[in-house]
Computed example of a mutant assay.
Amino acid sequence: MKEAHFKTLLKKYQEGKATASDKEHIRFFENQLKKKNANQIFTNDQHKEELKSSIIGVINRKISKPSFYWSKIAAILVLLLGVHLYRQYVSHSNTLYNEVTSGPEVKYYILPDSTQVWLNKSSKLQFANHFNETRDVILEGEAFFMVKKDQNHPFKVRFEGNELEVTGTQFTVNSKKTKQEVAIKEGSVTVTTTALEAYDLKVNNVLKITGQSSVKSIEEFPRSGYWSQGALLFNNMPMHQVLEIVSKRFGQTIRIENIDKGQLGLRISAKFTEDISVFDLLNSLTHITPFTYELNIERQELIIK
């Protein structure tokens, strides 16, 4: 998040024009700053509270119509970084989080912890630069998640003021302005709504949220939750063409190293279901023709050897 964008969000909040998504970004930014910088600024908890009380007092005297949340945010920013440190932090990091958008097509993306995400059309996913420490994402639109299991670092999805938490499972989140829905394919999750109601969801549970009301039901997980383009069918196709299709389907650049032309010309006949992951597909291909692969998550690149 650039400094100008953050200032715009704060101004909208102060004027009462911030959307649920805007508020989520502000809270996300606040939480990341606190986690990353608190130990560098305060000598102890008493020191933090004394400074906070002092600054909030000044802000409340200066603003004719003070907003409690605006005062809180401003105080936290000054306390955590100070004006000089805040500007220095923004200029060095450039952005606090990364953004992935799907545009007019479904987009497949692998997060830094190896969690796999299918973003439906016209959707957006944001996550912190130091993602492996927090595993928090913000979703606008719809996505299917195949979360990498990590008991020590829960995976959280924030959407329209709601929060989903899990350590490792498979589920979809459909986040629209007026209605949100969570469907579980595998494992279990906990969802806390904007009304502060907590729901524990298991396989084939669906939670539908409309405003301040929520309804939990039991339904078969929708196959449309993958938004894929159908099954993958290779009929006597050369290996190099198979890899080209895999690259396009999963949005991964494929770099080939140390494989001879004879192996790349090997013809393959196979069929894979629409919900297969790129890892399972490549593992299956290694049983047909021997090769190894590595994933460069930062570049979203698969290296075939």
Rank of each mutant, 00 (worst) to 15 (best):
S269V: 14
T190K: 15
S114E: 06
F159T: 04
E244P: 13
T134L: 11
T292H: 07
I259R: 02
V100L: 05
L295S: 01
N94K: 14
I209P: 08
Q212A: 13
A183G: 02
T8H: 03
L266S: 11
V173A: 02
K185Y: 04
R87H: 03
I297G: 00
A74N: 06
K17G: 08
F159G: 00
P66Q: 01
N39Q: 08
E142T: 09
Q300F: 07
E142N: 00
S224R: 04
E15A: 15
K62C: 12
F155V: 00
K216V: 12
L10S: 05
I76D: 15
K52T: 15
K177G: 08
K185G: 04
Y199D: 11
L207S: 11
R299D: 12
Y108D: 01
R61A: 14
E105T: 12
T210M: 09
L302K: 15
Q116H: 03
E142C: 08
I245L: 03
V215D: 07
A38Y: 10
N44Y: 02
K36S: 11
F145E: 04
K261Q: 15
H240A: 07
K248T: 06
G82K: 10
G230S: 12
Q32S: 10
L232R: 01
D113Q: 02
P290W: 11
E160W: 03
V78C: 14
I276L: 01
H240I: 05
G161W: 03
F234H: 07
G230T: 12
R87M: 06
F221S: 04
R267Y: 08
Q212H: 14
K34C: 12
P66A: 04
E165P: 15
L96K: 05
A74D: 10
K202G: 11
